[in-house]
Simulated assay, not measured.
Amino acid sequence: MTASDDTLHIPEGRPLTIWAVSDGRAGMENQVLGLAQAIARKTHAQIVTRHIRYRRLFDRWPTFLKLWPDQMLKRDSDPVGPPYPDIWIAAGRATLPHSLRMKAASQGKTLVVQLQDPRANLSAFDLVVAPQHDQVTGDNVLSILGAPHRITKERLAAEFAPWAERFKDFSGPFVAVLIGGKSKSHDLSRDRAETMAADIRRAVVATKGTLLLTISRRTPEAARDILVSALKDLPGLIYTGGGDNPYFAFLHKCDHILVTEDSINMAVEAAATGKPVHILSMDRRSALKSTRKFDEFHRALQDYGAARPFNGELRTWSYTPLNETARAAEAVLALLKSRATPS
């Protein structure tokens, strides 16, 4: 990865301004905010969230046809205009028309960082932070294992505090089970859900543990019903939506994490805790390229030492918590410093 010869300006007497730009969906927003917050932990910075949303007529248009993106936005979309930030961090298809124009719009004064595979002219960005399994290559590409996220020990402890009283009547080991659902590449059939529930039950009972189960909105209704029915009598907590979400409290308190293979974000967040991550197999919808990418990701996570396929046993092992978000933050700041002069 090499820096370009463009000159940026580091502000004196004020914090760096960082725009975290996405379409507002949780998966995208967590990535841009995760990287922005990691930068802010290393230097004085102010983070501004920006949501880009297009009117229905234009939403599905390919990026190359969005020639006047400002005029295509919904009324509830955040404006994209001067004064521009010191660092622009964006993720998702909706952000690309503006990301591709940001260097020119800011007259080179904004460091443009795009997450994931932009499938666009890489030279339009100062830095592309892409998952290893996407196999994006270029002088301005940083490949990371998984995706940026917002998990830190401090955040997990803070998120657990309001839930602490709920855990007083339970004893460990605590087993967090994170269930995803149907996607382009994976599904959770009735048969698979029944097998999964039986394996989870057997493991929790064998260790005299406590179940901490959270079920996604993407989980098929039949699978959700099977899992809840089969596991509801175990000691612990089950979250199926509605009310405060205990997801971060579960990650803080648990001793083991079981996570379905359909979610890279959940697996990476689990690996950030340093706790054993057990991967739950799902149904494959087809031999899609995206399915192969999931396989590559999970192999890399296993090679790192964070994860293993779940075989019905709650085995214990140790590894250094995965912290690719911090590595990406360091790369952004190093690039900014290498190209900057005080303003």
Rank of each mutant, 00 (worst) to 15 (best):
D23T: 09
V21W: 03
R55A: 00
S77D: 02
T63F: 03
L16Q: 08
T49A: 07
H51R: 11
A38G: 09
D23P: 04
L73N: 01
L65E: 01
V32T: 13
T43M: 00
K66D: 09
K42R: 15
K42M: 15
V80E: 13
D59P: 11
T43F: 00
A40N: 08
R25P: 00
V48Q: 14
A36F: 10
A36H: 07
L73I: 10
P69H: 08
I47C: 01
R56W: 09
R56V: 05
R41G: 11
I18W: 02
R53L: 08
R41Q: 14
T43L: 03
W68L: 15
I39N: 03
T63E: 01
D23N: 04
P62L: 02
A38R: 00
A38P: 05
M28T: 02
T17G: 06
S22G: 00
P82Q: 11
W61M: 13
A26W: 08
K74R: 13
D78F: 01
A26M: 13
K74L: 07
D59I: 04
L57R: 13
I52V: 11
V32E: 02
M28G: 12
Q71L: 13
R56H: 12
I18D: 07
K74Q: 09
G81N: 14
L35A: 11
D78G: 07
A45D: 10
V21I: 07
T43G: 02
L65Y: 00
L57H: 12
R60G: 12
E29V: 03
D23F: 01
R41N: 14
